[in-house]
Design a protein around this nucleic acid. Structure first.
Lengths: 108, 108
DNA sequence: TTTGTATATTGCAATATTACGATAATAATA
DNA sequence: TATTATTATCGTAATATTGCAATATACAAA
């Protein structure tokens, strides 16, 4: 198969899984960290810094955009990325909720 | 390709990515939640409750074991799973660290 | 307009993931 | 011992992911 049977799970479960799936690659973790550390970060800088080919970085950026974590600011031929902090907090909350609920259930 | 170039990333990045990758499937989120809610939960109960075939559940359980999140207790022919709460907290900490650091970088 | 720079898209190869039927392995019970 | 119940493993099909070369696109500067 290869595909996931998403319809048998609820909204929350699919949402948590989607967010963690996007984070579930070291390149994407690294990209997010690098963008957060460098206010004006374009694709080329990521390519230089991370050591993956430009199309690969572009592809990973697209995955990260899927959960709304990236803002873009086009300045001439440059495209500067930044983290959407609100969305970052949303994601953090969703994952934290999962951990909190799981832990509470375990310990009662 | 299909494989990830893990060697170009640091320990922390790979660790965060590994944990989130394991959590990045709704079936595994669901399995973890179900085990946490039911003290004595065996494979069969998960199969009944989640609606995936027994080999599929078994496979997902193996993925979750990769990050040490599951304890097993064999009672006769039954195998009862429970959450390793220490490991759960470890994972929570790793992911939380990622979010905290990213957020701090964004807002300075 | 031509050239150069930055990013996206396309196409493809290699590998990984997801799912399940069939079967094996293990242990309790009749 | 034969049967039954529970879980793991094997094999396989379908799909997804990862990575990159080649190419396209968009914009700025010469």
């Amino acid at each position: 198969m290869g595909f996931s049977k998403k319809h048998i799970f609820d909204e929350q479960q699919n949402q948590a899984a989607l967010i963690t799936k996007v984070l579930g690659h070291p390149a994407r973790i690294s990209i997010i960290q690098h963008i957060s550390q460098n206010k004006c970060c374009n694709c080329n800088e990521l390519v230089q810094n991370i050591g993956l080919a430009q199309p690969t970085i572009s592809q990973h950026l697209n995955e990260i955009k899927k959960i709304g974590l990236l803002d873009q600011d086009a300045k001439g031929k440059n495209l500067f990325y930044s983290i959407n902090v609100e969305r970052l907090n949303d994601c953090r909350r969703v994952i934290n909720d999962f951990f909190v609920k799981t832990q509470i259930n375990c310990c009662k």
